[in-house]
Amino acid sequence: MSDTPTVLVADDDRDILDIVTFRLERSGFKVIRASDGREAHELAVKHRPDVVVTDVMMPHMDGYELAKALRSDPATSHIPVIVLTALSQEEDAARAFESGAVDFVRKPFSPLELKARVQAALQRR
């Protein structure tokens, strides 16, 4: 692990992207931002972040598809994915884990708690 872990954050809501970015940068992470699933996938392949935090409902490629795509590519399959979602049904958590996510955070969330989950995902690697 490098000194400054890099987190790729994908959400189509700019305000959510800002909040997560502010929190993680204040806590010493480097943040790469994507506003849809396809962009997130491209950036993940290119930059190999230490953790991915992704929304579920996004244009082009949703968060589940992103998690699956990352898992099925040997170049990115080691990257832990945390799903951040506004969906509240119980099946949504199950779907996230089936897609290969290591953690699942429901909106509304506390930025501090999300940061703690990111740290936990880094430690578990």
């Binding site: 809501d13 305000d15 959510i16 909040i19 929190r23 409902m57 509240s88 909106k107 930025p111 501090l112």
Partner: peptide
């Protein structure tokens, strides 16, 4: 699903911004 999304996303922005 829509209700969830339309309430939970803005609530995240409010709660998250206030916390920051």
């Amino acid at each position: 699903g829509r209700i969830d999304h339309e309430f939970r996303t803005p609530l995240s922005v409010i709660i998250g911004s206030a916390e920051l």
